[in-house]
Design a binder for these strands. Structure first.
Length: 756
DNA sequence: GGGCCCGCAGGG
DNA sequence: CCCTGCGGGCCC
């Protein structure tokens, strides 16, 4: 990703990086996209003249870097979502090949799109397209795509394109109309259309992206880098799901989840933004796809490994997956009808069951969806390839399709005769859907006409304005009302007994200061800056407490018997690296803190604090407590901030204030802050929570202790002291850190005893 | 391809 | 602590 920040020359030949106009000798032209680049401003320069002639710009090389190599046994289908970037690059390559005539180019492109998808009518087809191409004859990619890939019915660029096995493209609607007329041959070449294609046409996502790319290339005539990587699969994940000792089956059938990469709490509503993505700093983008549910979970988009709905009945729903699990579902892309969960007999150790045997009710996750409907909360939507009836489902894996809102919900008699909960989801995302070639996101649209509403019972419609709505001034979808305060911590890493800590925590309001530290020195378990770092033989880093906690004690897990009762059985400790699953049992016998790493982290933290301190004080003439408090917040872990706030009586009000303050701060470019009302300190100091300490998340525990002081002057002086002292270096015998270490050890022992 | 099985995660 | 669940491997 080193190339992301590199920029080419603009349409006037000015380098967008250094703003100078490079001479022809200093200009390097990309072999794929023909974009000029200033040779002095690129990081990887070709060494020889031959290299220079074959040189690929960062944008083009990134496309191929980011895309996964084709897997063995994968059919090469034009619609395969995996190869879309390759396709674009290939189209560009054909386009830039000056040795080819227009007709030869057309033929190659056609071959490219039909590759592996059945017999092609080759020359006939080229002949058929030839007329159009000579007319357009222009050299931009849009021109090429326009002439080669038009829908044969409407003669326009196909909207929601579907591609027949004979390699012809049509709009989904045109194709469905044709099929609806009873036709079973290609409207273009009269080759037969397979029954499966006729009944279940799938949108050719590769072509969608190619068209959108082409449009971007055209609109970016100035040479700006195209945002290809927006639509690629997230493939360079450093961490994977792992099979525990307990699981009998290999693979992901009964696997444990790998780490969560994003820093949002599990009940986070709405999109996952760049600020919560320390791995890549880009957020989770519409169109990203994953192999399975566990990978999807790791990017925070949809957490439950089996359930299709993530939500809490007293809070709202975070996300849903369309997997075709309920036959009443109806998918129209920008809107769909979703069926609630339940109504099925899961006795006998089943996880799913196609047959309904009782009515669904608005309870549990069904109620969570209804809450989101009433409030107008954003719901993340994932489509799975398991949904066989929808044209909008991906060919493989799962794909994040963006934010939807539930406009109405009701109950109806389902296909199987039992009542089911129904939800009308309508898309409202700032990015275009993966099937549209639009270059903009959704605009508010009228609700579709739903036939089944006439028989609906228990109808719920939103009263009042939605929390997530379109802002006309900013021309985007955004929170128009304060989102509900999260009731969970950002990362509830496992505590020692393998059970999850339930202490409600909230996300830090400002992660930016710690971003670099987090990126470089975060623990793979708690995902926070490491305290007492351990480096495993496989070179992965963890907080000492986190790693030891992950392996301590025995865990008794319940298992369902065939009769539906539970039995208890012991879980062996898992002695594998949580990141790479290499056996680290020996290392765990006597793990040693990585001193060098610890000192590095500490010095970096100290520097950040000092810089921040100077900067903030110079900006703020009165040097108010709020400022110092904020500095402390920034260097503390999220937990502390949450605890302080939770002490306050009116959490909702504080949430609202923080939200407004953040908004204000953002709007004013970080210069302006809103003073928080209510109590900031704890009224009565509490003992640190054992599980919390065990999580070992906090290299800055002295600050944590300090910040619990009730009086503001105390906070001020102590924070200042803290900033200068870097007292958490327990090597220098600082009292506070010694104390913390003792507390840690003590509570750890206590915990171990409890477990035993 | 259908059915069985079952570890995991999380709601309540 | 019990219950639920739009997964996924494997056997037939």
């Amino acid at each position: 990703m080193a190339h992301v920040s590199e920029l080419p020359c603009d349409g006037d030949g000015i380098c967008m990086a250094c703003k100078k106009r490079p001479s022809p000798e200093e200009t390097l032209t990309c072999n794929t996209c023909a974009t000029p680049w200033h040779v002095n401003c690129i990081s990887s320069r070709p060494e020889t003249l031959a290299d220079a002639l074959q040189w690929e710009c960062p944008d083009c090389s990134q496309v191929s870097d980011l895309l996964p190599p084709p897997r063995d046994g994968d059919p090469v289908v034009a619609g395969g979502s995996g190869g879309s970037g390759d396709l674009i690059a290939a189209i560009r390559a054909i386009e830039s090949d000056r040795s080819l005539t227009d007709r030869e180019k057309a033929k190659r492109r056609q071959e490219l799109m039909c590759r592996g998808a059945g017999p092609s009518d080759g020359d006939d087809d080229a002949n058929c397209k030839k007329g159009k191409e000579t007319i357009d004859g222009n050299n931009d990619v849009l021109g090429i795509i326009d002439s080669s890939f038009n829908c044969s019915f409407c003669m326009q660029l196909p909207e929601r394109p579907v591609t027949t096995p004979c390699g012809h493209n049509f709009c989904l609607k045109c194709f469905q109309k044709w099929i609806g007329q009873g036709k079973r041959t290609c409207a273009n070449c009269r080759n037969p259309i397979p029954a499966k294609m006729a009944s279940q046409p799938r949108i050719n996502s590769a072509l969608v992206i190619a068209i959108r790319m082409a449009k971007m290339t055209k609109s970016n005539a100035a040479g700006g880098p195209a945002r290809v990587y927006h639509f690629v699969r997230n493939q360079d994940r450093p961490d994977k799901a792992f099979t525990s000792e307990r699981a009998k089956k290999a693979g992901k059938a009964n696997a444990s989840s790998g780490k969560i990469f994003v820093t949002v709490p599990p009940d986070h509503l709405g999109p996952i933004l760049a600020e919560n993505d320390p791995e890549r700093n880009q957020g989770v983008l519409v169109g990203e796809s994953w192999e399975g549910r566990l990978e999807c979970r790791q990017w925070g988009i949809h957490l439950p490994p089996v359930s299709g709905i993530a939500g809490q009945s007293s809070y709202g729903a975070q996300s849903v997956v369309l997997s075709g699990g309920y036959e009443d579902d109806e998918d129209h892309g920008e809107w769909f009808l979703y069926t609630g969960s339940g109504g099925r007999d899961l006795s006998g150790n089943k996880r799913t069951n196609k047959e309904h045997s009782f009515d669904q009710k608005f309870e549990k996750v069904n109620e969570a969806l209804r809450v989101s409907c009433r409030k107008g909360y954003p719901v993340r939507v994932v489509r799975s390839n398991k949904e066989k009836r929808s044209s909008y489902a991906p060919e493989i894996g799962l794909r994040y399709d963006g934010i939807y809102r539930i406009e109405k919900c009701w109950r109806k008699n389902g296909i199987q005769g039992y009542k089911v909960c129904r939800y009308l989801f309508v898309r409202c995302d700032n990015d275009p859907a993966p099937w549209t070639s639009d270059d903009h996101g959704d605009r508010p649209r009228p609700l579709p006409v739903i036939k089944e509403l006439k028989d609906a019972i228990d109808m719920t419609e939103r009263k009042g304005s939605p929390s997530w709505d379109y802002d006309d001034e900013k021309s985007c979808w955004t929170w128009k009302k304060c989102p509900p305060p999260s009731r969970k911590q950002v990362d509830d890493g496992d505590s020692e007994d393998g059970k999850r800590t339930r202490k409600p925590k909230r996300q830090a309001k400002n992660m930016s200061v710690k971003k670099k530290l987090l990126k470089e020195f975060s623990c793979h378990i708690c995902r926070k800056v490491m305290s007492f770092p351990l480096t495993t033989p496989c070179a992965h880093n963890f907080c000492k407490a986190c790693l030891e906690g992950a392996f301590a004690g025995q865990c008794f897990m319940r298992q369902r018997t065939c009769e539906g009762r539970r039995t208890l059985r012991a879980q062996k400790s898992i002695m594998k690296c949580p990141v790479c699953s290499i056996d680290i049992a020996d290392f765990l016998q006597n793990p040693q803190v990585n001193r060098e790493l610890m000192e590095l982290i500490e010095s970096l933290q100290g520097r950040i604090v000092e810089e921040e301190n100077v900067e903030e004080l110079s900006e703020e003439t009165d040097g108010s407590h709020e400022k110092l408090d904020e500095i402390a917040d920034n260097i503390e872990t999220c937990d502390v901030h949450c605890e302080i706030l939770e002490e306050a009586k009116d959490t909702a009000q504080i949430e609202s204030e923080i939200w407004q303050a953040d908004k204000l701060k953002k709007a004013s470019g970080g210069k302006c802050t809103l003073k928080r009302g209510g109590k900031k300190g704890r009224t009565s100091p509490k003992q640190p929570d054992a599980a919390n300490v065990e999580n070992g998340v906090d290299p800055l525990e002295p600050e944590k202790a300090d910040s619990k002081e009730p009086e503001d002057p105390a906070i001020e002086s102590k924070v200042q002291q803290t900033c200068k002292r870097k007292q958490y270096n327990h090597g220098d015998g600082g009292n506070s850190s010694t104390l913390d270490l003792e507390v840690k050890t003590r509570s750890k022992r206590a915990k171990m005893q409890v477990v035993e």
